[in-house]
């Protein structure tokens, strides 16, 4: 897998305030990178830096292997599609005209693509419609923005808060579109959002940013392990308990603790508890706990803020 984006101590300073401070992040080809952070944490500033809308104070980044200070960065950037903060559309034009303008900008000759991308984002009914974008709902504008970003067949699609303003059905459609584009066209995504549960349904990797710094980069698998359900069974004979549990739950991760045995992941309680009782072990206590993505995020952010 090739490296699509890597930043090296990327910093942006406004007067005395560091909006982004020494950000290091890596996005591999095919990743759906969930960029998570509270409001004002620096997500949009990082995206603006990558898309060339603002200049770094210090640090650099490589986009498709091209250094941001080299002449080839423009060409590398043309392989990117993006929505930064809000969709960049001409409000006094129709969806079709907006896409036609984007075709002209990107040098896309085949105008059949307009209908294709409109269909992709669920706005096919707007093809040929003269209604201006100013009359669209926020969700429709968001979809039109995504359609425009898709016109140039981007290899990296940067979506800043793409679920903003979308109704539940729209959120599902956009989520499915992201997954479809990722699977079928191998498009890499950088998606910023503060709707963590939504992000957790698509992302394969996460970058958690707080106060302008990336405090954690974690894969979906690692996050799953961190956030998964755990069951702690306390018994009189912990060693015997461990032996029984490992026998009946060969797929689960099992750890011995001071009080008992900790089982990570989903289990069939009736089956496990029956096996323990049948082995003659006296169960003292059963504790179930589950860490959600939100809890994990708050824990990470809290830890970083305490440092």
């Amino acid at each position: 897998m090739g490296n699509v984006l890597s930043t090296n101590l990327l910093t942006k300073k406004y007067k005395k305030h560091f909006a982004v401070n020494g950000v290091n992040m890596n996005i591999e080809q095919g990743d759906i990178y969930g960029f998570v952070g509270e409001n004002g944490s620096g997500k949009t500033t990082v995206i603006r830096l990558i898309t060339g809308l603002i200049y770094p104070y210090s640090g650099d980044f490589k986009l498709f292997g091209v250094d941001n200070n080299s002449k080839g960065i423009g060409k590398a950037r043309s392989r990117v599609g993006a929505i930064v903060e809000s969709p960049s559309i001409y409000m006094n034009m129709s969806a079709y005209d907006n896409l036609k303008m984007q075709c002209a900008l990107l040098g896309v000759k085949n105008e059949d693509k307009i209908l294709n991308v409109l269909n992709d984002v669920g706005l096919g009914h707007l093809y040929g419609e003269k209604k201006h974008a100013s009359d669209f709902s926020l969700g429709m504008r968001q979809r039109l923005g995504i359609a425009m970003a898709l016109l140039g067949d981007p290899e990296l699609l940067i979506l800043d808060e793409p679920m903003n303003g979308l109704d539940p059905a729209g959120i599902v459609e956009i989520r499915e579109l992201i997954l479809k584009l990722n699977h079928e066209r191998n498009i890499t995504f950088l998606i910023s959002s503060h709707i963590l549960t939504e992000l957790s349904l698509v992302a394969t990797k996460y970058g958690i940013i707080s106060k302008g710094k990336i405090i954690k980069e974690i894969t979906a698998e690692q996050l799953h392990n961190e956030c998964t359900k755990t069951t702690l069974i306390c018994a009189d004979d912990i060693e015997q308990l461990y032996k029984v549990v490992t026998e009946v739950l060969p797929q689960n991760k099992i750890e011995i603790t001071e009080k008992g045995v900790k089982i990570i992941g989903d289990i069939n309680y009736n089956f496990v508890l029956s096996a323990i009782i049948n082995a003659g072990i006296q169960i003292l206590n059963v504790q179930y706990s589950e860490t959600s993505f939100e809890e994990y995020y708050l824990k990470v952010i809290g830890g970083a803020n305490n440092d």
């Binding site: 898309t51 060339g52 809308l53 423009g74 060409k75 590398a76 950037r77 043309s78 990117v80 599609g81 993006a82 930064v84 903060e85 809000s86 960049s88 559309i89 001409y90 409000m91 006094n92 303008m101 984007q102 900008l105 990107l106 425009m148 140039g152």
Partner: peptide, 18 residues
């Protein structure tokens, strides 16, 4: 100035135009 107020100038920069 609509290019700036609509933010459409961003499309040009992202498209790799100098």
């Amino acid at each position: 100035c609509k290019d700036f107020s609509f933010g459409t100038v961003r499309n040009k920069i992202i498209a790799g135009k100098s």
